[in-house]
Computed example of a mutant assay.
Amino acid sequence: MNLFFLLIYFIIITAVIEIYVVLFRLTGLKLEISRFQVISLMTGTGFTTGESELILGHPIRRKLATFLILFGAFSLAVIISSISNFLSDDLRMNHILFVAGGVLLVFGVLKLACIQKLLSKLFHKKMKQNIELGDLPIRDVFLTEKGDYLLNLHIYKDSSLAFKTINQVIKEHGRLEFVVIFIKRGELKIRRNIYNEEIHEGDQLFLFGEKEVITEYFKDDMNIMEENLKNQHHTSLTRQFS
């Protein structure tokens, strides 16, 4: 009997996981990321990964995550209690079966294409009505299409852009699918006359546009940045263990 109860409760937990995987996916999160983050939230393990920013930076996902955290804590308490009490007499099996049936019914309804389409519209409508643009994660603001690309390009002394302007290096930039959002120079952010601003060693260029265009025209500078960052990381590890 005890094993049967645990089996039913495991089915409930699995159904809740799948329900929230669907809900997270309807907010625009990828399926594989949704499932991992749902399980992480329920169990309290692994949620500190970089992908958790996709949950924390999204207002609707944060609300969904709140329930999962509470449900995970409650589920652990129920499982521990059921094992320690060895299924006491006051725990009625018909109640747990009723709950399991309800959860599975909700999951079945959410799998319907028409319901998913309705919820997706509802989520996006709520985002447009109640959420300020500044509250949204970068992915939801800039990276809305497959070819969109956002690059933080670090400039070094051997970069092709060092001590030059964008206009000097890429004369036809006005016809290309990319823009320079701003140049970061220490604590200063340069937003005016960007394309005629001489770029210094140590500057950071924030570029947005078509990925193929950015990777084609800034390929050498990107390779130099990756090589320098790799060397800096290696030097840091060497100092740490020396």
Rank of each mutant, 00 (worst) to 15 (best):
K184S: 14
I115D: 08
Q168Y: 03
S120K: 15
K63A: 13
V103Y: 07
G186V: 07
K157Q: 13
S34V: 11
L112A: 00
N94R: 11
M225E: 06
K63H: 12
F241L: 10
I183Q: 04
E172S: 15
Q168I: 02
G57S: 01
I55W: 04
E210N: 15
E177L: 10
T144V: 15
I17T: 15
K117M: 08
V141G: 00
N228E: 14
I131C: 01
F36L: 14
R62V: 15
A15R: 09
I138W: 02
L118A: 14
D158K: 12
R92P: 00
R192L: 09
N152V: 01
L151M: 11
A77P: 01
H233V: 02
R25L: 02
V213D: 03
L122V: 06
S160V: 08
M127Q: 13
L26H: 02
R92I: 04
L133T: 12
V78C: 11
P137E: 10
I170N: 01
M222T: 04
Q240A: 14
F163V: 03
C114S: 10
G202Q: 08
D135P: 00
L151C: 13
I155N: 07
I183P: 09
V16D: 11
K111L: 14
E212Q: 11
A65M: 08
I214D: 01
R139P: 01
H173N: 09
I96M: 05
E227S: 11
T144I: 15
K30N: 14
N193T: 04
Q37K: 01
R185I: 11
E187F: 06
L161R: 10
Y149S: 08
L237C: 09
V103C: 02
I183Y: 07
L150H: 09
V22N: 15
S236Q: 06
G209Y: 10
L151W: 05
T43Y: 02
C114D: 04
E51S: 13
K121Q: 04
I83A: 08
H154T: 03
Y156V: 04
S236T: 05
Y20E: 12
Y156M: 04
D221Q: 04
S88G: 09
R175I: 03
K125D: 06
A77N: 06
F208N: 06
K111P: 01
H124I: 05
I214S: 03
F24W: 06
F98P: 01
L41K: 08
S75A: 15
I138G: 02
F218T: 06
F86G: 13
D140V: 05
D220W: 02
F208V: 05
V103K: 05
V38A: 00
D148Y: 07
L26V: 05
R61I: 11
N167Q: 12
Q168V: 04
H124M: 11
Q240V: 00
N231R: 15
V169Y: 09
I55F: 07
K125C: 06
R192C: 01
Q37M: 15
F241C: 01
S75K: 06
I19T: 10
G101L: 13
T66A: 12
T49K: 07
N130P: 00
V141F: 01
I80F: 14
D158M: 05
Q129I: 14
F71K: 07
D135L: 03
Y9D: 02
T43N: 03
M127W: 04
Y156Q: 02
Q168H: 10
E197C: 08
D135T: 00
A65E: 09
T165E: 08
N223H: 11
V141W: 01
P59E: 05
E51T: 05
G147P: 01
L122E: 07
K230S: 13
K128I: 10
L68D: 12
S40Y: 06
